[in-house]
């Protein structure tokens, strides 16, 4: 099965491990991630001001491409997913943003939020199925892993509709399917400090240490994430309390496809 895929800038540069392990694992699971043509940077943050249009257009272009190529758009980076999914909701439900974006783009047929935006984790759960993944595991994890959700996959939950924002379970189910033991810890949906580190380096440090300490106290041996910025903050500002990896690295490991 082929599915349109939006990689984003960071997965082509500093986070190639996320992109590559995801592609390898998907192939082993019968899913071919087809990179969309001429994608542009999503902007990394969803612009909240109602009068921001230009900063949303790259997401709309990707969504419109996917609309004509299977109707689904697969994302992997949490930030791209957040921006594209929230922009899609604007195109679906905010008449003013929709008409202004379409007025600029002059597409043959207006884009109105028709595409389904699917995060890689959602694809694993709903398209492949965790049961099927469990059957393909050749090297079970056999260790305690803490899922780190952060903000972008979960919030705002009314739009993201990813999981319960206060008590999510999808990454824990994923860890279980790979033969690992998920560790529930209180700070798994807390913010890592995000981009504010460039203004105030203390905040990501404080947040990252708190998150990793909380995971370690509950017995985690490592932590997994879907976000390059979370990985950077946790690894670089988190005082090495626990190792942090991309969730796809564990998937590739368990499926035996990691080079």
């Amino acid at each position: 099965m082929k599915i349109c895929y939006y990689p984003g800038c960071t997965l082509k540069t500093k986070s190639q491990a996320l992109d590559q392990t995801a592609r390898l694992a998907a192939l082993a699971l019968g899913v071919e991630m087809e990179e969309i043509e001429n994608w542009q940077c999503c902007g990394a943050v969803y612009p909240m001001a109602r009068d921001e249009i230009a900063t949303k257009l790259s997401a709309v272009r990707a969504l419109d491409y996917a609309k004509h190529n299977g109707g689904r758009l697969l994302t992997l980076c949490s930030a791209c997913h957040n921006v594209i999914k929230r922009t899609n909701e604007d195109m679906r439900s905010d008449g003013e943003i929709c008409s202004r974006a379409n007025n600029y783009l002059q597409l043959e047929e207006s884009y109105r939020g028709e595409t389904e935006v699917l995060h890689y984790l959602e694809m694993l759960k709903t398209v492949v199925g965790f049961d099927n993944i469990a059957q393909k595991v050749v090297k079970p994890l056999n260790r305690k892993v803490g899922a780190y959700y952060g903000c972008l996959l979960l919030r705002p939950s009314g739009v993201m509709a990813f999981d319960n924002p206060e008590n999510p379970t999808i990454i824990e189910d994923f860890i279980r399917a790979l033969g690992g033991t998920p560790v529930i810890y209180p700070f798994r949906n807390e913010c890592c400090g995000a981009y504010v580190g460039l203004k105030n380096p203390d905040l990501p440090k404080k947040q990252s240490e708190r998150i990793l300490r909380s995971a370690k106290e509950k017995g985690a041996e490592e932590v997994i994430t879907a976000c390059p910025l979370c990985l950077y903050n946790l690894n670089e500002k988190g005082s090495g309390i626990l190792p942090v990896k991309y969730f796809t690295e564990l998937l590739a490991e368990a499926l035996g496809v990691k080079s």
Partner: peptide, 8 residues
């Protein structure tokens, strides 16, 4: 990561 520079 590019994501950090772009976000900020």
């Amino acid at each position: 990561p590019q994501q950090l520079l772009m976000s900020a």
